[in-house]
Nucleic acid binder design. Structure first.
Lengths: 246, 246
DNA sequence: GTTATTTTACTAACTGGTTAGTTAATAATG
DNA sequence: CATTATTAACTAACCAGTTAGTAAAATAAC
């Protein structure tokens, strides 16, 4: 951990340090929120002195914003590569929903930061979060909306408010992970094991297929096809949220 | 505000003070989270000295738990009165979903506390939250699951994983309010105005009707009937989340 | 029914630990 | 040697929780 000190040029190592700080910040902020996170802890995770945080970032809040942008960027890259323009609108929507599901659990930190940011926004906190919305969410959402409009026009998808379809499709995924701790307590079966998630992922896509297509049989086929083409990614690609050995 | 001091017995006034503290705590914790909330601020909102918090509650965290239980209790009462056993399972489900929608926006503080509690649970925080889950969520959720099973057996509802139907129905509602700040930035149309919510409420129920019933026409009728019977409650019944005049 | 004693409800002012942020000095690098 | 990266040590503010006290209500004593 204290190695790799003699490699490369100074500025390259500086970049590396900076991004280590950012990673540590993402982790600490996502686990504890802006108020709960401790700068000392971020420094320790990153393996640097606390003062270095202030060398690279103006303040705790600036670091928070930078951390938010980091994860947003990752999500943008991940979601852009998901759509497959040569398939039917309906199939692309299903594909997108499946990708969204996988994204949530591999990017737990993003989800967590988002949730907390929502609460902050509710309070009317001044943001600079707007730019993330513009860069990440707007293009994604409007792209999906256009696909839905097209699918409905073609008669592949049921007539409905486009945004409602999004709320239903993405909301089900978000709610699954959001409620996981409660469900865990409620049914003493942990919803975050690989088996549980694999099941939910399948069922979630199948239900979407049954919900939004005019021809439910066609919907079921699309769902099956998409599921077959997209295996669930290995878990633990990012090992955020591992329990710390105190 | 400084009146009503000469009324009633001492212990009655004490009860009143205690509940004023709890209300203040609900508000402060829901806006700022456990770590972000300030005891001094809670005291100020309640109009008492900070030390009084420690007279009534052991610690900040004990107060937090008490606040959580307060709102959970309210929600339980609200949701129990929603089901109408003389209707068909499908109609009861739709009724429940509509009630859930209305509950979210009239009990914003609960939603907010829940979200934050989810994050805390994710981290494996020790809870005593379990009792709330047992008392509020488990009875509610299992009741709904049984209704779904019945509806599917009768052929009224489409065959699907019961929990998935819940994730879809409730997730869409939750996600609407969860994403409201982002959508607000994205489309500069505030989703939390009365008109926007009235529209979403209607569309959300209609979409549910189109999704879970074997006979989509019957589903549409049920949705229309439920909507007709249940006008949207006046907003601002609880004025949590009003902006504070600093 | 008045007086003395205890209990309850509440506050002003303090304390000590914590934590965001600074400074000044020191390595490393080019 | 001048610039850049990094740290140890410090400070000022903040904030959860305490203490020591008071006024009034409830209760007991006479």
């Amino acid at each position: 951990m204290a190695l790799s000190t003699q490699t490369r040029t100074q500025s390259e190592r500086a970049d590396h340090t900076r991004s280590r700080i950012l990673d540590a910040a993402v982790r600490e902020f996502s686990e504890n929120g802006l108020a709960g996170a401790r700068t000392e802890q971020i420094a320790e995770i990153a393996g640097v002195n606390k003062a270095l945080l202030y060398y690279y970032f103006k303040s705790k809040e600036a670091l928070y914003r930078a951390a938010l942008e980091t994860v947003a960027q990752r999500v943008l890259e991940m979601s852009l590569s998901a759509l497959t323009p040569d398939h039917s609108p309906g199939e692309q929507i299903v594909q997108f929903a499946l990708n969204h599901f996988d994204r949530i659990h591999s990017q737990r930190a993003f989800q967590s930061l988002m949730q907390q940011e929502m609460v902050r926004l509710h309070r009317g906190e001044e943001n600079s979060f707007s730019s993330i919305v513009e860069k990440v969410f707007r293009p994604m959402m409007f792209r999906i909306r256009d696909l839905l409009t097209e699918g409905m026009r073609d008669g592949e998808l049921v007539q409905a408010d486009e945004w409602q379809v999004m709320y239903a499709a993405l909301g089900a995924n978000v709610f699954y992970f959001l409620s996981a701790p409660v469900v865990g307590i409620m049914s003493d079966a942990n919803p975050l094991t690989r088996e549980a998630m694999e099941f939910r992922r399948k069922v979630s896509i199948e239900f979407l297929g049954a919900s939004i297509f005019v021809d439910r049989k066609h919907g079921a086929e699309v769902a099956a096809r998409v599921l077959a083409c997209t295996p669930m990614p290995e878990s633990g690609e990012f090992k955020m949220f591992e329990r710390k050995a105190k």
